[in-house]
Nucleic acid binder design. Sequence first.
DNA 1: CAAATGACTGTGC
DNA 2: GGCACAGCCATTT
Length: 122
Amino acid sequence: MQPFTKRVIEIIKSIPAGAVMSYGQIAELAGSRRGARQVVRILHTQSSIHQLPWHRVVNAQGEIAIQSEEGNMEQRSRLEEEGIEVSVQGKLDLAKYRFNPAPADIMGAWDNIDPDDVDQML
DNA sequence: CAAATGACTGTGC
DNA sequence: GGCACAGCCATTT
C-alpha cells in the first residue's frame, strides 16, 4: 500500500463524530492536492475492511456524493445520528461541520504510521 | 504496457 | 444556482 493511500485511511479515521471532510480536503492533507478521486476509490475498496467512518466524507459542496439510493439514505441517517443537520437535498453546512485539523497535527512520521494506530495518536 | 475507472473539483458560461 | 468540460491520478484490467 502506498503512503498516500495509507495517509488517506488515517485521516478518514481521525474525523471525529459530528464533523465531515471533503474528498479534496482529505487528498490534500494526504499529500496529493488533486487526489480526490483516489479518496473515492479508497472508500470503495477499504471502507469495510478498515471500518472507516465513510459517512463523514462529502463533496466540496457539502453534499452527500453517493449515487445509489440506498447508500445515500444510509449516509444521511448516520450523519443525522451524530447531530448533523442534512437538508432534503442531502446537503449540509460545511462552514459549520467541516473538520480542519492543523497540518502540524498530522504531519510527521507519516510513513511509519500504521492505519490501525491512528486512534492512539489522537 | 495502454486503457479504463471513479461516492471529485475548479473554472467558465 | 446549474451545467458542461477538462483535469486529476492511484489502482485495476
